[in-house]
Amino acid sequence: MNESTIAFIGAGNMASSIIGGLINNGWPTYQLIATARTEETLSDIREKFNIETTVDNHQAVGKADVIMLCVKPQVMKEVLTDLSSSIKPNALIISVAAGITMESLQKWGGEHLSIVRSMPNTPSLLQCGASGLYANNNVSNDHKKLTDDIFNAIGIAKWVDQESLIDAVIAVSGSGPAYYFLLMEIMEQVGSRLGLDNETSRQLTLQTALGAARMATESSVDAAELRRRITSPKGTTEQAIKTFQEQGLPELVEKAMNAAVDRSIELAEALKD
């Protein structure tokens, strides 16, 4: 069992999902502490997880081996600058704030800090997330193992060796759930227009999405091969797939994901000090 104490600075949805995942995977509640600006937020966390809470960030950080920075990007500079003097030597700092670069984190907290930038996504709330991770040169192998333990508790985690690839992670898995939600939304609507009642169309769409995802994750072959196996020559599925391809769906998806990358770069630039 890991003996590290983790302080969550900020107790919103992402912090709550990580806390829940850790507890579900056997992390002792007495090694978790959460902070927030209001007692109302903290009372919800205490009631849900039975962990220590405080409105004093310095108190939490002083106890912590790992500091999860779960605050909004707009207040990260203020929070990290204020906390820099309270961080224990060799503590691991993990930022879950989108758009805050390693350069900024090191400038506000200190060049000596061991920092990981993470990019989890919203299915982490169900312990079914996909997270991208990038470490600075101060992060040890032990720190990386500890980071893996944390993020594997809420899904899967993949390391990238260039910080710029965090933008690609955002385009694939950070924003990705919304792409699938949009397709499901459209399929539900079209199913209704084809004559199904709304609830039947909804349930068939959602179960189909769930089944396809399970087949893809549990199969030994890739998504392209799975698609080929259910696309019979001259059948109904082939006609639908041909329409997608002829109308430029692959190019449209690539354009959309590149737009996500471009916007991520713009936001990071705007948040730099």
Rank of each mutant, 00 (worst) to 15 (best):
M1Q: 09
N2P: 00
N2T: 05
S4A: 14
T5C: 12
T5Q: 09
T5W: 09
I6V: 06
I6A: 05
A7H: 09
I9T: 03
G10A: 02
M14P: 06
I18R: 02
G20T: 03
G21A: 04
L22I: 07
N24I: 00
N25D: 01
G26K: 04
W27D: 03
T29K: 15
Y30E: 14
Y30V: 15
L32T: 08
A34H: 10
T35R: 06
T35E: 14
A36K: 13
A36Q: 14
A36H: 15
T38A: 03
E39P: 12
E40D: 12
E40H: 08
T41I: 10
T41R: 05
S43M: 07
D44G: 08
F49G: 05
I51T: 13
I51E: 11
T53Y: 09
V55F: 02
Q59L: 06
V61H: 11
V61E: 10
A64F: 06
V66R: 08
M68H: 05
L69H: 03
C70P: 15
V71A: 14
K72W: 08
Q74P: 05
V75M: 10
M76L: 11
K77N: 12
L80G: 07
T81A: 07
D82C: 00
L83Q: 00
S86V: 01
I87E: 00
P89Y: 01
N90P: 04
A98P: 06
G99A: 05
I100P: 14
T101P: 08
E103T: 09
L105F: 11
E111I: 03
E111S: 01
S114E: 03
M119P: 04
P120I: 02
P123Y: 04
P123M: 07
S124N: 03
G129W: 08
G129A: 05
A130I: 04
S131Q: 10
S131C: 11
L133D: 01
N136P: 02
N137S: 10
N138G: 13
D142R: 03
H143V: 08
K144C: 10
F151K: 03
F151S: 00
I154C: 05
G155V: 08
I156R: 15
A157P: 05
E163T: 12
E163Y: 10
E163K: 15
S164P: 00
S164H: 06
I166W: 12
I166V: 11
D167H: 14
D167P: 03
V169E: 07
V169K: 07
I170L: 15
I170P: 15
V172Q: 13
Y179M: 01
L182I: 00
L182M: 02
E185P: 14
I186C: 12
M187N: 09
Q189S: 09
S192C: 13
Q203F: 02
L204C: 11
T205A: 05
T205P: 00
L210S: 13
A213F: 15
A213M: 15
M215H: 00
A216L: 12
S219R: 03
S220Y: 12
V221S: 06
R228P: 14
I230H: 14
I230V: 15
P233K: 11
P233C: 02
G235A: 01
A240L: 14
K242Y: 08
E251K: 13
E254C: 08
A256N: 04
M257W: 10
M257K: 05
A259E: 01
L267D: 08
A268S: 13
E269Y: 01
E269F: 01
E269G: 04
A270F: 10
L271C: 01
K272S: 14
D273K: 08
D273F: 07
